[in-house]
C-alpha cells in the first residue's frame, strides 16, 4: 500500500497521486454581493470608506470591491439548499487525509492568505484544493501524526486569481486513542 515519493516520504499511492493535483473544484453558490460586504464590515466595525463610500471606491478601485479578508466567504455553501443530500465539508482534502491515515484528530497550525486581484460585486468565485505535501509521521505534544500543506486557489469568472490560501494541518492520534 505504501509508495515513496520524490522526497522519500512514504505514504499510500493514492496520496502520492493527490499531490499537486487540483481537486474538489467548487463554484460559489451566489455572486459576490455588497450586502455581505457591509455585514462583514459591521461585524468588526470596519469603517474603511472604500467599502462604504462609492466615490472613494470609484476613485481608488474603479468601483466597489469586497474586503480582501472576505476571500473564503464567497465559496462557503449555504447551510441548506433544495435537494441537498449531505453537508459539504470545507477543505475536503484535509478530511480525506485524516481518513486515509486513520488520524481521528486534526488541528490547523498555520494559515497564509495571499490576495490577488480585487473581488467585486457580481463576481462568481471558483476554488479548488491542491495537496502540496505530507510529512513523515511526527510526534508532538498532541500525539503521533503527520503534517500536511493544502493550498486553496480562488479564481474569478475571468480566471484571474483573486487569492490563494495555504493551510498547514496536523492530523494525529492522541496517545490514549
Amino acid at each position: 500500500m505504501s509508495a515513496a515519493n520524490e522526497s522519500a516520504v512514504s505514504y499510500p499511492t493514492k496520496v502520492a497521486d493527490w499531490i499537486g493535483e487540483p481537486r474538489y473544484e467548487v463554484v460559489g453558490g451566489f455572486p459576490v454581493e455588497r450586502g455581505y460586504v457591509w455585514t462583514a464590515c459591521a461585524s468588526v466595525e470596519n469603517g474603511n470608506p472604500l467599502f462604504w463610500d462609492d466615490e472613494v471606491a470609484a476613485d481608488l478601485t474603479g468601483g466597489p470591491i469586497a474586503p480582501p479578508s472576505m476571500l473564503s466567504v464567497w465559496f462557503r455553501p449555504h447551510f441548506w439548499h433544495p435537494g441537498q443530500a449531505e453537508r459539504a465539508l470545507p477543505l475536503q482534502v484535509h478530511f480525506d487525509l485524516k481518513e486515509v491515515f486513520d488520524l481521528p484528530e486534526a488541528v490547523m497550525t498555520e494559515n497564509t492568505v495571499i490576495f490577488g486581484e480585487p473581488v467585486r460585486p457580481g463576481d462568481v468565485i471558483r476554488t479548488f484544493q491542491v495537496l502540496k505535501s505530507v510529512s513523515e509521521p511526527k510526534r508532538t505534544k498532541l500525539g503521533l501524526g503527520r503534517f500536511w500543506v493544502i493550498d486553496v486557489i480562488y479564481l474569478n469568472q475571468d480566471d484571474a486569481e483573486v487569492g490563494r490560501e495555504s493551510y498547514t494541518g496536523f492530523g494525529y492520534r492522541r496517545d490514549e486513542q
Binding site: S43, V44, N46, N48, P67, P68, T112, F115
Partner: peptide
C-alpha cells in the same frame, strides 16, 4: 482575519492594500 484587516487599514487608510497574512 476581518479584525486584522480592520486593524491594519484603520492605520493605513483606504489606499493600504493587503498582500499577505499569515496566522
Amino acid at each position: 482575519a476581518h479584525w486584522f484587516e480592520r486593524f491594519i487599514t484603520d492605520w493605513t487608510g483606504p489606499k493600504g492594500r493587503l498582500g499577505q497574512m499569515t496566522f
